[in-house]
Simulated scan of single mutants.
Amino acid sequence: MNTESTPAPDFGLSLDQCWTLLETEVVGRIALIVDGHPEIFPVNFALERRSIVFRTAGGSKLWAAMTAKPVAFEIDGYDAHEQQAWSVVARGEAQLIESQQEKDAVDQQLLEPWQPGDKDYYVRLAPKAMTGRRFKVNRPDMWATRLSDPRRASFE
């Protein structure tokens, strides 16, 4: 008897499907290199002209934008109804938005910082590459799965 489990199929997402999923979220993670090592920061974001925009104060995220280092941006989620998880990753270079006209266009997307304090710098990531995937998740073991695991919701 074969006891090995068959891996769940992994479905690659089209570019349009990736953008659609990005439109459904408001928080993602920006990954960049700081002092020679990777750092990941949660940011709330908006989409404007097929780019990802966030606001920040001075610091590591702004530094990455100023030095045009490559960055990655990631969101993920879980659809309890379909019992599928998904992930989207965008890669490119971050750029500081300096034009007031461009800042006004971003403000029309209602991008308001969540964290208190001045977030006067607007940063844009126009992805040079974007990938996404969706996959069916394993049915949870109801006795051994944490109560906070979102997979439980579709079986309870």
Results as ranks from 00 to 15, higher is better:
1 M>C: 09
3 T>F: 13
3 T>P: 00
5 S>L: 15
5 S>E: 12
6 T>F: 06
6 T>D: 07
6 T>K: 14
8 A>G: 11
9 P>T: 10
10 D>G: 00
10 D>W: 12
11 F>V: 12
11 F>S: 10
12 G>I: 03
13 L>I: 04
19 W>M: 06
23 E>A: 15
25 E>N: 07
27 V>K: 05
27 V>C: 06
28 G>I: 02
29 R>I: 07
31 A>H: 03
32 L>G: 11
33 I>Y: 05
34 V>P: 00
35 D>A: 15
36 G>V: 06
38 P>D: 09
39 E>F: 10
42 P>M: 09
43 V>Q: 03
43 V>D: 03
44 N>Q: 08
45 F>R: 04
47 L>H: 04
47 L>M: 11
49 R>I: 00
50 R>P: 00
54 F>H: 09
56 T>Y: 04
57 A>E: 11
58 G>K: 14
60 S>I: 07
60 S>E: 13
61 K>W: 03
62 L>F: 12
64 A>M: 09
65 A>W: 01
66 M>W: 01
66 M>C: 11
67 T>H: 15
71 V>C: 13
72 A>M: 02
73 F>P: 05
73 F>E: 07
73 F>G: 05
74 E>N: 07
75 I>M: 06
76 D>K: 05
76 D>V: 03
77 G>F: 09
78 Y>N: 08
78 Y>P: 03
79 D>L: 09
80 A>T: 11
81 H>S: 14
82 E>T: 12
84 Q>K: 15
85 A>P: 02
87 S>A: 14
87 S>P: 01
92 G>S: 09
93 E>K: 14
96 L>R: 14
96 L>Y: 06
97 I>Y: 02
98 E>W: 03
99 S>T: 05
105 A>E: 12
105 A>N: 10
106 V>A: 06
107 D>G: 00
109 Q>R: 15
109 Q>W: 03
111 L>Y: 05
113 P>M: 08
114 W>D: 00
115 Q>A: 14
116 P>H: 06
118 D>V: 11
118 D>F: 08
119 K>R: 14
121 Y>I: 08
123 V>E: 09
123 V>D: 07
124 R>Y: 06
124 R>L: 02
126 A>C: 10
130 M>S: 05
131 T>A: 13
133 R>I: 10
134 R>A: 10
139 R>P: 01
140 P>A: 07
141 D>H: 12
146 R>S: 15
150 P>L: 09
153 A>E: 14
156 E>V: 14
